[in-house]
Design a binder for these strands. Structure first.
Lengths: 235, 235
DNA sequence: CGATGAATTGACATGACTCAACAACTGTGG
DNA sequence: CCACAGTTGTTGAGTCATGTCAATTCATCG
Protein backbone atom coordinates (compact mmCIF):
# COMPACT_ATOMS: atom_id res chain seq x y z
CA UNK A 1 0.00 0.00 0.00
CA UNK A 2 2.93 2.31 0.59
CA UNK A 3 4.82 3.42 -2.47
CA UNK A 4 8.44 4.17 -1.76
CA UNK A 5 9.84 7.43 -3.06
CA UNK A 6 13.45 8.27 -2.44
CA UNK A 7 14.54 11.80 -1.80
CA UNK A 8 15.78 11.98 -5.37
CA UNK A 9 12.45 10.86 -6.73
CA UNK A 10 10.81 13.31 -4.40
CA UNK A 11 11.80 16.13 -6.64
CA UNK A 12 12.47 14.30 -9.85
CA UNK A 13 10.18 11.30 -10.03
CA UNK A 14 6.59 10.75 -10.99
CA UNK A 15 5.12 11.15 -7.51
CA UNK A 16 7.40 13.94 -6.43
CA UNK A 17 6.76 17.05 -4.40
CA UNK A 18 8.01 19.61 -6.90
CA UNK A 19 5.51 18.43 -9.48
CA UNK A 20 2.77 17.45 -7.08
CA UNK A 21 -0.78 17.79 -8.34
CA UNK A 22 -1.76 19.74 -5.25
CA UNK A 23 1.56 21.52 -5.36
CA UNK A 24 0.35 25.00 -4.61
CA UNK A 25 -1.11 23.87 -1.32
CA UNK A 26 1.02 20.89 -0.29
CA UNK A 27 3.32 21.33 2.64
CA UNK A 28 6.64 21.07 0.88
CA UNK A 29 5.57 22.99 -2.19
CA UNK A 30 7.88 25.91 -1.46
CA UNK A 31 11.01 23.82 -1.24
CA UNK A 32 13.92 23.84 -3.65
CA UNK A 33 16.03 21.04 -4.99
CA UNK A 34 18.68 21.95 -2.44
CA UNK A 35 16.20 21.58 0.38
CA UNK A 36 15.29 18.09 -0.71
CA UNK A 37 18.95 17.14 -0.71
CA UNK A 38 18.89 17.63 3.04
CA UNK A 39 16.15 15.08 3.59
CA UNK A 40 17.47 11.64 4.30
CA UNK A 41 14.39 9.64 5.12
CA UNK A 42 12.15 9.25 2.07
CA UNK A 43 8.85 11.00 1.62
CA UNK A 44 6.17 8.40 1.16
CA UNK A 45 2.68 8.18 -0.21
CA UNK A 46 -0.04 6.09 1.29
CA UNK A 47 -3.62 5.15 0.55
CA UNK A 48 -6.05 4.52 3.38
CA UNK A 49 -9.28 2.58 2.99
CA UNK A 50 -12.42 3.82 4.78
CA UNK A 51 -12.34 2.88 8.44
CA UNK A 52 -8.60 2.41 8.69
CA UNK A 53 -6.65 4.24 11.34
CA UNK A 54 -3.76 6.56 10.44
CA UNK A 55 -2.59 6.99 14.03
CA UNK A 56 -3.97 7.08 17.54
CA UNK A 57 -3.79 9.60 20.36
CA UNK A 58 -0.62 9.01 22.35
CA UNK A 59 1.29 7.37 19.52
CA UNK A 60 4.83 8.74 19.22
CA UNK A 61 4.80 11.17 16.32
CA UNK A 62 7.34 10.58 13.58
CA UNK A 63 5.58 11.99 10.54
CA UNK A 64 3.54 14.93 9.42
CA UNK A 65 0.85 14.17 6.86
CA UNK A 66 -0.71 16.07 3.98
CA UNK A 67 -4.07 14.89 2.73
CA UNK A 68 -3.97 14.59 -1.06
CA UNK A 69 -7.54 13.38 -1.42
CA UNK A 70 -10.31 11.83 0.62
CA UNK A 71 -11.77 12.64 4.00
CA UNK A 72 -10.62 11.76 7.52
CA UNK A 73 -11.99 12.36 10.98
CA UNK A 74 -9.92 13.51 13.94
CA UNK A 75 -11.35 12.05 17.13
CA UNK A 76 -10.80 12.57 20.84
CA UNK A 77 -12.25 10.44 23.60
CA UNK A 78 -13.81 11.73 26.79
CA UNK A 79 -13.40 10.32 30.30
CA UNK A 80 -16.92 8.89 30.16
CA UNK A 81 -16.14 6.98 26.98
CA UNK A 82 -18.03 9.28 24.66
CA UNK A 83 -16.15 10.23 21.54
CA UNK A 84 -16.14 13.55 19.78
CA UNK A 85 -14.92 14.42 16.31
CA UNK A 86 -12.97 17.66 16.72
CA UNK A 87 -12.02 18.28 13.09
CA UNK A 88 -12.19 16.84 9.61
CA UNK A 89 -9.17 16.48 7.34
CA UNK A 90 -9.59 16.88 3.60
CA UNK A 91 -7.49 17.73 0.56
CA UNK A 92 -4.48 19.96 1.37
CA UNK A 93 -5.01 19.72 5.15
CA UNK A 94 -2.03 18.85 7.32
CA UNK A 95 -2.38 16.23 10.05
CA UNK A 96 -0.22 15.67 13.10
CA UNK A 97 1.23 19.15 13.64
CA UNK A 98 1.06 18.67 17.39
CA UNK A 99 3.82 16.06 17.43
CA UNK A 100 6.29 18.71 16.25
CA UNK A 101 5.92 20.20 19.73
CA UNK A 102 4.59 17.53 22.05
CA UNK A 103 6.23 14.48 20.44
CA UNK A 104 2.94 12.55 20.42
CA UNK A 105 -0.23 12.67 18.36
CA UNK A 106 -3.26 13.99 20.16
CA UNK A 107 -6.06 12.60 18.05
CA UNK A 108 -7.14 9.36 16.58
CA UNK A 109 -7.35 9.84 12.82
CA UNK A 110 -9.63 7.55 10.83
CA UNK A 111 -10.34 7.61 7.10
CA UNK A 112 -14.00 8.17 6.21
CA UNK A 113 -13.45 7.82 2.47
CA UNK A 114 -10.58 6.27 0.59
CA UNK A 115 -7.81 8.78 1.27
CA UNK A 116 -4.39 9.44 -0.20
CA UNK A 117 -1.73 10.96 2.01
CA UNK A 118 1.87 12.07 1.78
CA UNK A 119 4.00 11.84 4.85
CA UNK A 120 7.05 13.84 5.81
CA UNK A 121 9.63 12.79 8.40
CA UNK A 122 9.46 14.91 11.53
CA UNK A 123 13.17 15.74 11.47
CA UNK A 124 12.97 17.02 7.92
CA UNK A 125 10.09 19.31 8.80
CA UNK A 126 11.73 20.63 11.94
CA UNK A 127 15.03 21.20 10.22
CA UNK A 128 13.63 22.78 7.09
CA UNK A 129 11.24 24.99 9.01
CA UNK A 130 14.29 26.69 10.44
CA UNK A 131 16.27 26.77 7.23
CA UNK A 132 13.57 27.64 4.75
CA UNK A 133 11.55 30.82 5.37
CA UNK A 134 8.87 29.67 2.94
CA UNK A 135 8.19 26.51 4.88
CA UNK A 136 8.41 28.39 8.14
CA UNK A 137 5.69 30.71 6.95
CA UNK A 138 3.64 27.88 5.54
CA UNK A 139 3.81 25.91 8.76
CA UNK A 140 2.52 28.89 10.68
CA UNK A 141 -0.32 29.18 8.19
CA UNK A 142 -1.15 25.51 8.87
CA UNK A 143 -1.34 26.10 12.60
CA UNK A 144 -3.50 29.09 11.89
CA UNK A 145 -5.86 27.15 9.69
CA UNK A 146 -6.22 24.37 12.24
CA UNK A 147 -6.98 26.88 14.97
CA UNK A 148 -9.51 28.74 12.83
CA UNK A 149 -11.19 25.44 12.10
CA UNK A 150 -11.30 24.63 15.79
CA UNK A 151 -12.83 28.01 16.55
CA UNK A 152 -15.47 27.48 13.88
CA UNK A 153 -16.17 24.06 15.37
CA UNK A 154 -16.84 25.70 18.72
CA UNK A 155 -19.00 28.51 17.46
CA UNK A 156 -20.83 26.97 14.53
CA UNK A 157 -20.98 23.25 15.24
CA UNK A 158 -21.26 23.28 19.03
CA UNK A 159 -23.55 26.24 19.65
CA UNK A 160 -27.25 26.69 19.05
CA UNK A 161 -30.13 24.37 18.19
CA UNK A 162 -29.60 21.05 16.45
CA UNK A 163 -31.05 22.50 13.24
CA UNK A 164 -28.62 25.41 13.19
CA UNK A 165 -25.65 23.19 13.92
CA UNK A 166 -26.73 20.78 11.20
CA UNK A 167 -27.17 23.60 8.69
CA UNK A 168 -23.71 24.88 9.53
CA UNK A 169 -22.23 21.45 9.02
CA UNK A 170 -23.96 20.89 5.70
CA UNK A 171 -22.73 24.24 4.42
CA UNK A 172 -19.16 23.11 5.13
CA UNK A 173 -19.39 19.74 3.45
CA UNK A 174 -19.08 20.53 -0.28
CA UNK A 175 -15.47 20.30 -1.40
CA UNK A 176 -15.32 23.39 -3.57
CA UNK A 177 -16.66 26.69 -2.35
CA UNK A 178 -18.96 27.03 -5.34
CA UNK A 179 -20.31 23.48 -5.14
CA UNK A 180 -23.71 22.78 -3.63
CA UNK A 181 -23.50 19.00 -3.68
CA UNK A 182 -21.94 16.68 -1.13
CA UNK A 183 -21.99 13.22 0.36
CA UNK A 184 -23.53 12.77 3.77
CA UNK A 185 -21.58 11.25 6.62
CA UNK A 186 -22.93 8.42 8.70
CA UNK A 187 -25.52 9.58 11.21
CA UNK A 188 -23.25 8.47 14.02
CA UNK A 189 -20.35 10.59 12.74
CA UNK A 190 -22.66 13.55 12.26
CA UNK A 191 -23.81 13.10 15.83
CA UNK A 192 -20.22 13.00 17.02
CA UNK A 193 -19.45 16.21 15.15
CA UNK A 194 -22.52 18.10 16.31
CA UNK A 195 -22.74 16.66 19.80
CA UNK A 196 -26.14 15.08 19.35
CA UNK A 197 -27.46 11.53 19.22
CA UNK A 198 -27.56 9.72 15.92
CA UNK A 199 -31.36 9.65 16.19
CA UNK A 200 -31.52 13.43 16.39
CA UNK A 201 -29.10 13.66 13.48
CA UNK A 202 -31.29 11.33 11.42
CA UNK A 203 -34.47 13.20 12.34
CA UNK A 204 -32.97 16.56 11.50
CA UNK A 205 -31.79 15.36 8.11
CA UNK A 206 -35.19 13.84 7.38
CA UNK A 207 -36.76 17.14 8.35
CA UNK A 208 -34.41 19.05 6.04
CA UNK A 209 -35.32 16.70 3.19
CA UNK A 210 -39.03 17.15 3.80
CA UNK A 211 -38.75 20.93 3.89
CA UNK A 212 -36.51 21.05 0.82
CA UNK A 213 -33.40 22.43 2.51
CA UNK A 214 -31.60 19.49 0.99
CA UNK A 215 -32.63 17.07 -1.75
CA UNK A 216 -31.25 13.61 -2.28
CA UNK A 217 -29.68 13.14 -5.70
CA UNK A 218 -28.89 9.56 -4.94
CA UNK A 219 -28.31 7.58 -1.78
CA UNK A 220 -26.39 9.80 0.65
CA UNK A 221 -25.48 12.27 -2.07
CA UNK A 222 -27.40 15.51 -1.70
CA UNK A 223 -27.89 18.95 -3.16
CA UNK A 224 -27.98 21.86 -0.73
CA UNK A 225 -30.35 24.82 -0.87
CA UNK A 226 -27.59 27.14 0.27
CA UNK A 227 -29.63 30.33 0.76
CA UNK A 228 -32.26 28.45 2.74
CA UNK A 229 -29.62 26.78 4.92
CA UNK A 230 -28.00 30.15 5.56
CA UNK A 231 -31.39 31.45 6.58
CA UNK A 232 -31.65 28.64 9.14
CA UNK A 233 -28.24 29.59 10.53
CA UNK A 234 -29.11 33.25 10.80
CA UNK A 235 -32.68 32.83 11.99
CA UNK B 1 -2.00 53.53 31.38
CA UNK B 2 0.75 52.46 29.00
CA UNK B 3 4.26 52.56 30.36
CA UNK B 4 6.83 53.14 27.66
CA UNK B 5 9.83 50.87 27.58
CA UNK B 6 12.50 51.44 24.96
CA UNK B 7 14.31 48.53 23.42
CA UNK B 8 17.27 49.37 25.65
CA UNK B 9 15.13 49.28 28.75
CA UNK B 10 13.60 46.08 27.46
CA UNK B 11 16.64 44.19 28.49
CA UNK B 12 18.14 46.55 31.04
CA UNK B 13 15.34 48.41 32.76
CA UNK B 14 12.97 47.62 35.59
CA UNK B 15 10.18 46.27 33.41
CA UNK B 16 12.41 44.50 30.93
CA UNK B 17 12.03 41.14 29.24
CA UNK B 18 15.31 39.59 30.33
CA UNK B 19 14.38 40.04 33.98
CA UNK B 20 10.67 39.57 33.60
CA UNK B 21 8.87 38.03 36.56
CA UNK B 22 7.22 35.48 34.29
CA UNK B 23 10.42 35.17 32.35
CA UNK B 24 10.49 31.44 31.97
CA UNK B 25 7.15 31.51 30.18
CA UNK B 26 7.00 34.92 28.54
CA UNK B 27 7.26 35.05 24.81
CA UNK B 28 10.59 36.81 24.46
CA UNK B 29 12.25 35.02 27.36
CA UNK B 30 14.68 33.16 25.13
CA UNK B 31 16.06 36.27 23.47
CA UNK B 32 19.53 37.66 23.85
CA UNK B 33 20.77 41.20 24.13
CA UNK B 34 21.67 41.07 20.46
CA UNK B 35 18.14 40.11 19.54
CA UNK B 36 16.71 43.08 21.38
CA UNK B 37 19.04 45.36 19.48
CA UNK B 38 17.13 44.43 16.36
CA UNK B 39 13.80 45.63 17.70
CA UNK B 40 13.04 49.18 16.81
CA UNK B 41 9.54 49.71 18.05
CA UNK B 42 9.41 49.57 21.85
CA UNK B 43 7.89 46.75 23.83
CA UNK B 44 5.14 48.12 26.00
CA UNK B 45 3.22 47.14 29.08
CA UNK B 46 -0.43 47.82 29.56
CA UNK B 47 -3.05 47.37 32.27
CA UNK B 48 -6.65 46.62 31.34
CA UNK B 49 -9.58 47.17 33.68
CA UNK B 50 -12.40 44.63 33.77
CA UNK B 51 -14.72 45.04 30.83
CA UNK B 52 -12.28 46.90 28.63
CA UNK B 53 -11.57 45.66 25.13
CA UNK B 54 -8.04 44.80 24.02
CA UNK B 55 -8.98 44.40 20.36
CA UNK B 56 -11.90 43.35 18.21
CA UNK B 57 -12.33 40.79 15.47
CA UNK B 58 -11.31 42.30 12.16
CA UNK B 59 -8.98 44.91 13.65
CA UNK B 60 -5.67 45.08 11.79
CA UNK B 61 -3.14 43.20 13.90
CA UNK B 62 -0.01 45.07 14.83
CA UNK B 63 0.94 43.47 18.13
CA UNK B 64 1.19 40.13 19.81
CA UNK B 65 0.31 40.10 23.51
CA UNK B 66 1.48 38.11 26.51
CA UNK B 67 -0.78 38.03 29.54
CA UNK B 68 1.25 38.81 32.65
CA UNK B 69 -1.65 38.57 35.07
CA UNK B 70 -5.42 38.66 35.09
CA UNK B 71 -8.05 36.93 32.99
CA UNK B 72 -9.48 37.74 29.57
CA UNK B 73 -12.16 36.23 27.39
CA UNK B 74 -11.80 35.63 23.66
CA UNK B 75 -15.18 36.01 22.00
CA UNK B 76 -16.61 35.28 18.58
CA UNK B 77 -20.04 36.32 17.35
CA UNK B 78 -22.44 34.14 15.43
CA UNK B 79 -24.63 35.15 12.48
CA UNK B 80 -27.71 35.10 14.72
CA UNK B 81 -26.13 37.54 17.14
CA UNK B 82 -25.36 34.97 19.80
CA UNK B 83 -21.86 35.24 21.22
CA UNK B 84 -19.60 32.42 22.26
CA UNK B 85 -16.45 32.54 24.35
CA UNK B 86 -13.97 30.31 22.55
CA UNK B 87 -11.03 30.56 24.96
CA UNK B 88 -9.80 32.25 28.10
CA UNK B 89 -6.45 34.02 28.36
CA UNK B 90 -4.55 33.96 31.60
CA UNK B 91 -1.00 34.37 32.88
CA UNK B 92 1.65 33.42 30.26
CA UNK B 93 -0.92 32.97 27.49
CA UNK B 94 -0.25 34.64 24.15
CA UNK B 95 -3.03 36.55 22.41
CA UNK B 96 -3.33 37.53 18.77
CA UNK B 97 -1.19 34.85 17.08
CA UNK B 98 -3.57 34.76 14.14
CA UNK B 99 -2.57 38.23 12.92
CA UNK B 100 0.93 36.92 12.20
CA UNK B 101 -0.67 34.98 9.36
CA UNK B 102 -3.96 36.61 8.50
CA UNK B 103 -3.07 40.25 9.29
CA UNK B 104 -6.25 40.72 11.36
CA UNK B 105 -7.40 39.64 14.79
CA UNK B 106 -10.12 37.02 14.80
CA UNK B 107 -11.57 37.45 18.26
CA UNK B 108 -12.82 40.17 20.47
CA UNK B 109 -10.73 40.10 23.62
CA UNK B 110 -12.22 41.56 26.80
CA UNK B 111 -10.67 41.69 30.26
CA UNK B 112 -12.65 39.86 32.95
CA UNK B 113 -10.33 40.86 35.77
CA UNK B 114 -7.77 43.62 35.93
CA UNK B 115 -5.13 42.32 33.54
CA UNK B 116 -1.53 43.23 32.80
CA UNK B 117 -0.18 42.60 29.34
CA UNK B 118 3.04 43.02 27.40
CA UNK B 119 2.83 43.70 23.72
CA UNK B 120 5.34 42.93 21.00
CA UNK B 121 5.42 44.58 17.58
CA UNK B 122 4.39 42.19 14.82
CA UNK B 123 7.49 42.89 12.73
CA UNK B 124 9.80 42.08 15.64
CA UNK B 125 8.08 38.75 16.22
CA UNK B 126 8.09 37.81 12.55
CA UNK B 127 11.69 38.80 12.09
CA UNK B 128 13.01 37.18 15.24
CA UNK B 129 11.03 34.00 14.72
CA UNK B 130 13.17 33.48 11.62
CA UNK B 131 16.43 34.57 13.18
CA UNK B 132 16.13 33.02 16.62
CA UNK B 133 15.52 29.26 16.82
CA UNK B 134 14.43 29.56 20.44
CA UNK B 135 11.63 31.95 19.59
CA UNK B 136 10.73 29.91 16.55
CA UNK B 137 10.29 26.88 18.74
CA UNK B 138 8.45 28.84 21.38
CA UNK B 139 6.03 30.30 18.88
CA UNK B 140 5.19 26.84 17.63
CA UNK B 141 4.58 25.79 21.22
CA UNK B 142 2.15 28.72 21.56
CA UNK B 143 0.20 27.64 18.51
CA UNK B 144 0.14 24.16 19.90
CA UNK B 145 -1.14 25.29 23.26
CA UNK B 146 -3.90 27.37 21.71
CA UNK B 147 -4.96 24.44 19.56
CA UNK B 148 -4.95 22.02 22.49
CA UNK B 149 -7.08 24.47 24.43
CA UNK B 150 -9.50 24.71 21.54
CA UNK B 151 -9.72 20.92 21.33
CA UNK B 152 -10.42 20.72 25.05
CA UNK B 153 -13.08 23.38 24.63
CA UNK B 154 -14.78 21.21 22.03
CA UNK B 155 -14.58 17.96 23.92
CA UNK B 156 -14.93 19.02 27.54
CA UNK B 157 -16.87 22.27 27.48
CA UNK B 158 -19.15 21.66 24.52
CA UNK B 159 -20.03 17.99 24.89
CA UNK B 160 -22.26 16.20 27.38
CA UNK B 161 -24.81 17.30 29.96
CA UNK B 162 -24.76 20.74 31.52
CA UNK B 163 -23.50 19.24 34.78
CA UNK B 164 -20.54 17.56 33.12
CA UNK B 165 -19.63 20.64 31.16
CA UNK B 166 -19.88 22.76 34.29
CA UNK B 167 -17.71 20.33 36.28
CA UNK B 168 -15.11 20.42 33.52
CA UNK B 169 -15.10 24.19 33.54
CA UNK B 170 -14.78 24.45 37.31
CA UNK B 171 -11.85 22.03 37.28
CA UNK B 172 -10.05 24.37 34.87
CA UNK B 173 -10.61 27.56 36.78
CA UNK B 174 -8.03 27.42 39.62
CA UNK B 175 -4.81 29.19 38.59
CA UNK B 176 -2.31 26.72 39.94
CA UNK B 177 -2.68 23.02 39.27
CA UNK B 178 -2.62 22.21 42.96
CA UNK B 179 -5.11 24.88 43.97
CA UNK B 180 -8.74 23.99 44.66
CA UNK B 181 -10.04 27.53 45.02
CA UNK B 182 -11.18 29.92 42.35
CA UNK B 183 -13.40 32.87 41.55
CA UNK B 184 -16.60 32.25 39.64
CA UNK B 185 -17.31 34.05 36.41
CA UNK B 186 -20.56 35.84 35.76
CA UNK B 187 -23.38 33.44 34.97
CA UNK B 188 -23.68 35.00 31.57
CA UNK B 189 -20.01 34.35 30.75
CA UNK B 190 -20.30 30.81 32.05
CA UNK B 191 -23.29 30.34 29.80
CA UNK B 192 -21.32 31.68 26.85
CA UNK B 193 -18.47 29.29 27.59
CA UNK B 194 -20.62 26.21 28.08
CA UNK B 195 -23.26 26.99 25.49
CA UNK B 196 -26.16 27.15 27.93
CA UNK B 197 -28.46 29.87 29.18
CA UNK B 198 -27.42 31.91 32.18
CA UNK B 199 -30.40 30.46 34.07
CA UNK B 200 -29.16 26.93 33.53
CA UNK B 201 -25.68 28.03 34.59
CA UNK B 202 -27.09 29.54 37.75
CA UNK B 203 -29.21 26.49 38.54
CA UNK B 204 -26.31 24.12 37.98
CA UNK B 205 -24.05 26.12 40.27
CA UNK B 206 -26.76 26.27 42.93
CA UNK B 207 -27.15 22.53 42.62
CA UNK B 208 -23.39 22.00 43.00
CA UNK B 209 -23.43 24.15 46.12
CA UNK B 210 -26.33 22.21 47.63
CA UNK B 211 -24.70 18.86 46.96
CA UNK B 212 -21.30 20.02 48.23
CA UNK B 213 -19.39 19.75 44.95
CA UNK B 214 -18.38 23.34 45.57
CA UNK B 215 -18.58 25.49 48.70
CA UNK B 216 -18.65 29.25 48.77
CA UNK B 217 -15.78 30.72 50.79
CA UNK B 218 -17.01 34.21 50.15
CA UNK B 219 -19.09 35.80 47.45
CA UNK B 220 -18.16 34.24 44.12
CA UNK B 221 -15.01 32.68 45.59
CA UNK B 222 -15.35 28.95 45.95
CA UNK B 223 -13.57 25.80 47.03
CA UNK B 224 -13.83 22.78 44.73
CA UNK B 225 -14.36 19.18 45.78
CA UNK B 226 -12.03 18.01 43.03
CA UNK B 227 -12.56 14.24 43.35
CA UNK B 228 -16.31 14.68 43.40
CA UNK B 229 -16.21 16.95 40.35
CA UNK B 230 -14.06 14.45 38.52
CA UNK B 231 -16.60 11.80 39.37
CA UNK B 232 -19.29 13.94 37.75
CA UNK B 233 -17.15 14.23 34.62
CA UNK B 234 -16.52 10.52 34.41
CA UNK B 235 -19.97 9.37 35.44
C1' DC C 1 -30.68 54.47 51.83
C1' DG C 2 -32.33 53.79 47.21
C1' DA C 3 -31.09 52.57 42.55
C1' DT C 4 -29.11 49.45 39.46
C1' DG C 5 -27.59 45.26 37.58
C1' DA C 6 -26.69 40.35 38.71
C1' DA C 7 -28.22 36.10 40.49
C1' DT C 8 -31.70 33.04 41.91
C1' DT C 9 -35.87 30.61 41.65
C1' DG C 10 -40.45 29.07 39.92
C1' DA C 11 -43.73 27.56 36.37
C1' DC C 12 -44.16 26.06 32.10
C1' DA C 13 -43.01 24.81 27.22
C1' DT C 14 -40.24 22.38 24.21
C1' DG C 15 -36.27 20.34 22.20
C1' DA C 16 -33.37 16.55 22.59
C1' DC C 17 -32.49 11.93 24.53
C1' DT C 18 -33.83 7.05 25.42
C1' DC C 19 -35.54 2.86 24.24
C1' DA C 20 -37.64 0.17 20.92
C1' DA C 21 -39.52 -1.44 16.61
C1' DC C 22 -39.01 -1.56 11.96
C1' DA C 23 -37.16 -0.50 7.25
C1' DA C 24 -33.42 -0.08 3.99
C1' DC C 25 -29.10 -1.24 2.47
C1' DT C 26 -24.79 -4.31 2.04
C1' DG C 27 -22.37 -8.20 1.43
C1' DT C 28 -22.21 -13.37 1.52
C1' DG C 29 -23.16 -17.97 0.26
C1' DG C 30 -26.19 -21.09 -1.88
C1' DC D 1 -30.59 -14.56 -8.71
C1' DC D 2 -32.44 -15.08 -4.13
C1' DA D 3 -32.26 -15.70 0.90
C1' DC D 4 -30.12 -14.35 4.81
C1' DA D 5 -27.62 -11.91 8.35
C1' DG D 6 -25.50 -7.90 9.81
C1' DT D 7 -25.31 -3.17 9.72
C1' DT D 8 -27.12 1.38 9.25
C1' DG D 9 -30.90 4.47 9.00
C1' DT D 10 -35.71 5.83 10.19
C1' DT D 11 -39.53 6.59 13.02
C1' DG D 12 -42.59 6.52 17.19
C1' DA D 13 -43.75 7.17 22.15
C1' DG D 14 -42.51 8.62 26.47
C1' DT D 15 -39.24 10.99 29.55
C1' DC D 16 -36.07 14.28 30.99
C1' DA D 17 -33.09 18.16 30.50
C1' DT D 18 -32.77 22.60 29.07
C1' DG D 19 -34.78 26.86 27.40
C1' DT D 20 -38.19 30.66 28.14
C1' DC D 21 -40.46 34.14 30.58
C1' DA D 22 -41.35 36.26 34.79
C1' DA D 23 -41.02 37.39 39.66
C1' DT D 24 -38.06 37.96 43.53
C1' DT D 25 -33.87 38.37 46.12
C1' DC D 26 -29.16 39.81 46.54
C1' DA D 27 -24.91 42.63 45.96
C1' DT D 28 -22.79 46.87 44.86
C1' DC D 29 -22.14 51.54 44.84
C1' DG D 30 -23.14 56.18 44.81
Amino acid sequence: MIKRVTSIQAWNGTADCLNCSIRSSALFSGLTEDDFDLIHEPIEQQTLEPGSVLYKAGDPGRHLYTVRSGLLKMVQYLPDGYQRIVRLGRSTDVLGLEMLVGQHYQHEVIALNTSELCRYPKEAVLHLSQANPELHKDLMARWHKALSEADAWITKLSTGSSKKRMANLLLRLPDADDSTKCYLLSREDIGSILSMTLETASRTISDFKRTGLISEIRHNYIELDVPALKAVVEG
